[in-house]
Computed example of a mutant assay.
Amino acid sequence: MKGAPVLLIHGGLWDATDSELFWYRPGIMAGLEATGLTVEAPDRPRQPASWSQEVTEFGALLASGLLGPKPVTLVGASNGCTVAALLALECPTAIGRLLLAWPATGGDPEVNAWARAGLIERGATPEIADGLLFGETLRGVTDAQVASLELTGVLVGVLPSVPENPSHQRKTVDELLRLVPSAVELPGCPEPPRADFAPYRDQLVATLHEFAS
């Protein structure tokens, strides 16, 4: 019998990383599969023109039935939290649980300026960069949309970056917990691509397994 289905959406913004770097090399994928979960971790579009493009592609994956008929546990990481939150709003009946892990900080002028310069350096047009960075607590999502997650019936969890850093600030976690009062905070750790993540691998796998089960 297949275990509970989990869909992992890696972090990064416009060609910055992929699922291999985020989920496979740090050992998260293997660890979750060893617990009996059914896990998929596809790459996000490398150079999306908009967040809606990413949501459409992941929505098609959910509709394909690849993960089976059970409601999916959706794990968004860093900037992948934007895709995950929008997907949960668009397809709430297909998603039973939503984890916003290491949510990337939106609405911060200094951080956005740095991110915008990086996007343009990697080939994004100014229009695409501005569209991806627009938002409030989360990029690409209004706070009203985040608050409406409370009405979907989806169980929401938030996992902070510990220690926090400019791209993943504690204030973002606090605001998400305020906007979605029923959300639960899970034990935090560094983001997987970071060099200091390795000692937290088993803790994170156990946290994700417990949340998805």
Rank of each mutant, 00 (worst) to 15 (best):
G3V: 05
A4M: 12
P5W: 13
V6A: 03
L7V: 08
L7G: 06
L7W: 09
L8W: 00
W14A: 00
D18P: 00
S19N: 04
E20F: 11
L21H: 10
Y24L: 12
Y24V: 13
R25I: 03
G27L: 07
I28F: 01
A30D: 12
G31F: 02
L32F: 09
L32C: 12
L32P: 06
A34S: 02
T35S: 00
L37M: 08
T38G: 06
V39I: 15
P42S: 05
P42N: 06
D43K: 14
R46Y: 15
R46A: 15
R46W: 15
P48T: 15
A49V: 13
W51T: 08
Q53H: 14
Q53L: 11
Q53Y: 09
E54F: 01
T56P: 03
F58H: 01
L61D: 04
L62Y: 05
S64F: 04
S64A: 00
L66Q: 09
L66T: 12
G68L: 03
G68R: 09
G68M: 09
P71F: 04
T73L: 01
T73W: 01
N79Q: 15
G80V: 04
T82E: 10
A84T: 03
L87I: 02
A88L: 01
A88R: 01
E90W: 02
E90G: 08
C91P: 02
C91T: 07
T93M: 05
L98Y: 10
L98H: 04
L100N: 08
A101Y: 11
A101I: 14
A101C: 14
W102G: 12
P103A: 14
P103T: 14
G106T: 08
G106K: 04
G107H: 10
V111Q: 14
W114V: 15
W114Y: 07
W114I: 14
A115H: 00
A117T: 15
L119K: 13
E121A: 14
E121S: 11
E121Q: 13
R122H: 15
G123Y: 04
A124Q: 13
T125W: 15
E127Y: 09
E127V: 11
A129D: 12
D130R: 15
D130H: 13
L132M: 10
L132S: 01
L132V: 03
L133N: 03
F134M: 12
G135V: 10
G140N: 04
A144M: 07
A144L: 03
A144P: 05
V146A: 07
V146G: 02
E150C: 11
E150Q: 10
E150R: 05
L151V: 06
L151Q: 04
T152Y: 04
V154K: 07
L155A: 13
V158L: 13
P160A: 07
V162P: 01
V162L: 00
P163Q: 00
E164T: 05
N165R: 06
N165A: 07
R178A: 05
L179Q: 07
S182W: 02
L186D: 10
G188S: 01
G188I: 00
C189S: 14
P190A: 07
E191D: 08
E191G: 02
P193I: 07
D196I: 09
F197A: 11
F197L: 08
Y200H: 11
R201I: 01
D202I: 07
Q203W: 13
Q203G: 11
T207W: 10
T207Q: 11
H209K: 11
A212T: 12
S213Q: 12
S213V: 12
